[in-house]
Each structure stands twice: as structure tokens, then as C-alpha cells.
């Protein structure tokens, strides 16, 4: 039990409870929910969000925030697709490389601005978010990529399943290939955060910038890693997003960044830095995606997504904040 406690904290038990209760309620309302097919659907829909969420977790752990990752994801994904169309290089690896390089470069811009000018990360990335999105739409284009124009390799990637099954109605379903990059990203993020000094440096920075500096960490390279890593993940997510949806609108993801951050925050990461875990983040994403994609089973349209996501977010931050308020009053520190 003590071992378990080390790996799963209170917040994560709450989240699992919420997921369980929600699942039971939906299952009693609609038997279509508790099926492998639906599970695979939710998984596919969550892939992009999980990848970005890992990046957001790294930024939040460092005590920063990044609002530019959706702009970077679109910059990477859209530019890669357009480049493939223009050069006729119809190769998936090419798409990933182009998008990833763009992501890393833009992330480096964020890191430089934040480190050199000591800007609050939120304001800085709010600025670069507009800047990146504006540069892409002004210089690369805004033309919507329709299904007919989409490079074949991307379309194939979007529809590829690792294995397939047939449901009662006779249509096939299966496990999306997206699961591969998702698993790789989660494992790599875990490894970096917990097994490397770089990851410890990220968390040290989030705990106390001054102490991290005095410990001898090179904060410039740590920040460089943080923001280029988010950029890289955004680049990967961009390609997955483009492959997943059939027609790509140039500013599609722009403006949705706060939803992604909300998922990570529901997962227990603190904006003050140093606190947050991979398991919690995954659970946070699952809750948000479940609410977004399974309300139909309750007979509600997707118009209700925001309502429920907002309610869960308010409930979860309200509860944890109230707990720490009571603690701070009890300790007579009055910090919360």
C-alpha cells in the first residue's frame, strides 16, 4: 500500500474515481459506450492531446506556461503538408522531419526570448503564438487542404490500424497506429523527467529558480530543452493532427491551447511549478477527451463539451485550491 501511495497520489485517485463513475453512468445509459470499438475511438481522438500534454507538463513543471504550442503544431503540420504537395515528396518520414524541425526552431525562439529578457512565460508565448501563426498564414498560406489534395502517405497514416476487428454491424475498427508515437512520447518524457539530470533540472527550476542556479544547473540550456521539447512534440502532433482530420484549415488549432492546458491542470500539475505527474496528466487528458467524445452516448450534442469540461476543471481546481487554503490558514501563513 505504501508503495502504491508513492506512485499514485490523492488527486489521481479522485480522477480515477471520476472516470469510473462517469463510465458507469454512461454504460447504464448506453451499451455502446463500454465497447472496445469506442475505447479505440477515444484513444485515437486523444493521441494528439496526450502528446501535447506531455510537453505542457514539462513546461508547467519548470514553473512556466506555453501558449504557443498550437500555433507551432499548425505551423509544422500545415507547412509539412504544403511542402509535400509542392515538392511531391510523398513520404511520412519527410513530414515528421520537416514538422519536427520547425517545432524545434520555433521552440528555440521561445526559449531565447524567455531566457534573455526574463519575460513572464505566459506573455512571451502569447506574443510568439500570434507571431508564429501570423508568419505562417502570411508567408506560407491559408489555403485549406482538402481530402483530395492531401498527400497519400499522410492519409494512409491517418487511417492505418495496427490490427482490425469487425463489429456486429459488419464494419471494421481497430487500434490506431497513432498509439506508437504516443507510447514513445510518454516513455521518453518519463525517462527524461525522472531518470536524467536534465529532467531533474527542469523540476529544480520549477521548484526554485534561484536554488537551481546556485546548484550549478545551466538554466539557459534547461530552458532551451523545455521549449524546444514542447516545440518538437507540437511538431509531431501537427503531423498527426493533419493526418487525422480530412481537411486542414490553416488556423485550426489556434485558440484551443487553453483546453490542452486545462487537461494537464485537471491532472494535478500546478502552475507554480515543480508539481505534476505523468499519470495524473494522462488521467486529465482522458477525462477531457471522454467528456468531449462520449457525450453523444448520453444523448447530448457536442455543444455540451465546453460546459462539462469547464465544470470538471472548476470542480477540480476549486477542490485542490480550497484544500491548500485550509492548510495555509491552519499553518497561519495566509499564502492561499
Amino acid at each position: 500500500m505504501k508503495r502504491l501511495k508513492k506512485y499514485i497520489n490523492q488527486n489521481e485517485w479522485y480522477l480515477m474515481g471520476i472516470i469510473l463513475i462517469y463510465s458507469i453512468i454512461v454504460t447504464t445509459q448506453n451499451s455502446g459506450f463500454f465497447t472496445l470499438e469506442n475505447f479505440f475511438d477515444v484513444l485515437k481522438g486523444s493521441s494528439g492531446m496526450i502528446i501535447l500534454a506531455m510537453g505542457i507538463l514539462v513546461v508547467l513543471l519548470s514553473g512556466g506556461i506555453d501558449l504557443s504550442f498550437t500555433a507551432i503544431a499548425m505551423f509544422g503540420g500545415y507547412s509539412a503538408a504544403r511542402l509535400m504537395m509542392a515538392t511531391k515528396i510523398d513520404n511520412l518520414a519527410f513530414a515528421f522531419v520537416v514538422s519536427a524541425v520547425i517545432g524545434i526552431l520555433l521552440g528555440a525562439v521561445n526559449a531565447l526570448i524567455i531566457h534573455k529578457f526574463h519575460l513572464p512565460t505566459m506573455i512571451a508565448t502569447l506574443g510568439t503564438s500570434s507571431l508564429f501563426s501570423g508568419i505562417m498564414t502570411t508567408f506560407i498560406g491559408t489555403k485549406t487542404i482538402t481530402v483530395g489534395m492531401m498527400p497519400k502517405s499522410l492519409r494512409a497514416f491517418g487511417g492505418f490500424r495496427l490490427f482490425e476487428m469487425v463489429n456486429d454491424a459488419g464494419s471494421t475498427y481497430g487500434l490506431t497506429v497513432f498509439i506508437i508515437p504516443v507510447v514513445i512520447v510518454v516513455v521518453v518524457t518519463w525517462f527524461i523527467l525522472y531518470k536524467t539530470m536534465l529532467g531533474r533540472g527542469v523540476i529544480a527550476l520549477g521548484n526554485s529558480e534561484e536554488a537551481a542556479k546556485r546548484s550549478g544547473f545551466n538554466l539557459f540550456w534547461i530552458r532551451m530543452f523545455i521549449y524546444t521539447y514542447v516545440g518538437l512534440l507540437a511538431g509531431i502532433m501537427g503531423v498527426i493532427y493533419v493526418a487525422e482530420v480530412n481537411s486542414v484549415y490553416a488556423v485550426a488549432l489556434y485558440g484551443t491551447e487553453l483546453t490542452y492546458i486545462a487537461a494537464v491542470v485537471i491532472g494535478g500539475a500546478k502552475l507554480t511549478g515543480g508539481e505534476g505527474k505523468i499519470l495524473g496528466t494522462l488521467l486529465g487528458v482522458i477525462i477531457v477527451r471522454l467528456l468531449n467524445s462520449t457525450l453523444v452516448f448520453l444523448g447530448l450534442t457536442s455543444s455540451w463539451n465546453g460546459f462539462f469540461t469547464g465544470a470538471v476543471l472548476l470542480f477540480s481546481v476549486g477542490l485542490t485550491s480550497y484544500m491548500s487554503r485550509l492548510r495555509s490558514r491552519r499553518n497561519l501563513t495566509f499564502t492561499d
Partner: peptide, 15 residues
């Protein structure tokens, strides 16, 4: 200059 959310062991050994 300690790291409040890190463990005793990590704080001692980090530097």
C-alpha cells in the same frame, strides 16, 4: 536555496 517539492535525498545530493 532548497527545492521545496523535492525529497530530502534529492536535495542533499543534487548539487
Amino acid at each position: 536555496s532548497l527545492f521545496p517539492h523535492m525529497t530530502v535525498a534529492e536535495n542533499i545530493s543534487m548539487n
